[in-house]
Design a protein around this nucleic acid. Structure first.
Lengths: 202, 202
DNA sequence: ATAATACTTGACCGACCGGTCATCTATTAA
DNA sequence: TTAATAGATGACCGGTCGGTCAAGTATTAT
C-alpha cells in the first residue's frame, strides 16, 4: 500500500508538472515514467490509459486548488471584495514562482487543458467545466455577501461571478502569451470593475 | 503559379480549419494532405516543416481577421463603444456558426495555440503575442475616442484596452469549455464595464 | 527547341507513440 | 506454510508521426 501509493503519487505529481508546464499531447508516458522513476508496466498497473491519467491529474489539481489558496482566498473571515484581490495575488505569485523555476509561465492547467482537449474529449471537457462552475460559485458567494453588506450596489451576482472567472482566465492567458506574470498584477485588480446589471423583472 | 498558389492555399485553409477545430498536436500532416488533396512531398515543397505551417496559418488567420470582422467592428464610422458590442456580436455569431457546422465550439485559434504551444516555441509565442498587442490597440483607439468624445470618463485607456482583450479571450475560453456560444452573448457585453483608472501623476 | 525551374508523386525512413504482456518479487490473508 | 493478490520489470508490438528523396511531369524563360 505504502509503496504503491507512493508510486501512483509520483506518477500523478510528475504528470501534473509536465502537463502544466507544456501540454497534454507534448508529454509522453515514457517521459513521465522516467522522471517519476517508474516502469512503464507499473504505470499501466495504476492507470488504464493516458487519458485516464489526465483525468486523475485534473481531479488531483482541482483538489489541491480547492483546499489550497482558493480556500484561503475565499476565506469567510475575509471581506468579500478583498477575496478577489487575494485570488489575483495568489495567481500572480504562483505564476511568478513557476516562471522563476522553469523560465516560462505555465498558465492555468484547467484553461490549458480545456482549450487543448475539450474539442476532442467530452468527458474531460465536462470535468473541467464542472471545476469552472465550482470556482465561479466561490465568486458568486463573495459577490452575494458584498451586496448584502452594502459594499457594492445590487447586480446580477451569478452572471458577474462567471464573468469574473472568465476575466481571470483571460488575464492568465494573456500573461502566458506574453510570458510575463506582471500582466496578472497589472490587469488583475480590474476584476472588481466588472459588473453585470440585474435583468429587470418582467 | 495558379495551380501552385491553389495547392498552397488548400493546404493553408485545411490546416487552419483542422488546427482551429482540434489542436496543433492532434492534427497530422498526413490528415491535412488527405483532406486538402495534396501529396505529402508536395506539402513539403511549400512548407519546410509542420511548425512553419503553423506560423503560416497564424499569419493567414491574423490577416483574414484584421481585414474581416475586426475591420468591420472597429470601423471609424461606428461610435467607439458600439465597436465593442460589434466585436462581441461577431465573435458570438462566428462561434455559433462553427458549432452548428462541427458540433463543437472551436474558440479562438490564437488563444488555443497560445496555450498549447507558447511554452514550447518562443517564435510562435511572440507571433501570437504581437497579434494580441495589435488587437488590443484597436480597443485602445476606440477607448481613446470614447474618452475624447466624453462618452466615458477618463481612464487608463491602454491598460483597460488590454484588459478588455483579456476578458474577451476569457469569455471565449469559458464558452468553449461549456461548448456553448451563448456564454459569449451572456457575458460579452460586460466588456464595457471594465475600467482601469489612470495612475495618479507623481 | 531547349534548358531551367516549379511542382507532383508516392514509396520510404527512423523515431517515437500509447499500450501489452509474461515473468518476477513483495505483501497480505488464511 | 501456503495461496492469492498487488506491484514491478523491461522487452516487445503495431501504428503513426514528421520528414526525405529520387524520379517524373508541367511550366516558364531564353
Amino acid at each position: 500500500m505504502n509503496v504503491a501509493a507512493d508510486t501512483k503519487d509520483r506518477i500523478l505529481t510528475t504528470a501534473r508538472e509536465l502537463f502544466h508546464g507544456r501540454s497534454y499531447a507534448d508529454v509522453g508516458i515514457k517521459e513521465i515514467c522516467t522522471l517519476a522513476n517508474v516502469q512503464k508496466g507499473s504505470f499501466y498497473h495504476f492507470f488504464p490509459s493516458k487519458r485516464d491519467l489526465a483525468m486523475a491529474v485534473i481531479d488531483d489539481m482541482a483538489d489541491d486548488w480547492a483546499h489550497g489558496f482558493v480556500a484561503e482566498a475565499f476565506d469567510d473571515e475575509l471581506p468579500p471584495l478583498e477575496r478577489l484581490d487575494y485570488m489575483v495575488d495568489a495567481v500572480y505569485y504562483w505564476q511568478k514562482a513557476a516562471k522563476n523555476l522553469e523560465g516560462r509561465m505555465p498558465g492555468c492547467l484547467f484553461g490549458n487543458l480545456a482549450l487543448e482537449i475539450s474539442t476532442r474529449d467530452e468527458v474531460i471537457r465536462a470535468r473541467i467545466n464542472a471545476i469552472f462552475i465550482n470556482a465561479s460559485s466561490r465568486f458568486h458567494e463573495a459577490l452575494e455577501l458584498a451586496v448584502e453588506r452594502g459594499d457594492i450596489p445590487p447586480l446580477d451576482t451569478q452572471t458577474t461571478a462567471t464573468a469574473m472567472l472568465a476575466y481571470l482566465e483571460g488575464v492568465i492567458l494573456l500573461a502566458k502569451t506574453r510570458n510575463d506574470p506582471d500582466v496578472v498584477r497589472e490587469l488583475g485588480p480590474a476584476i472588481k470593475s466588472i459588473r453585470i446589471e440585474l435583468k429587470p423583472p418582467n
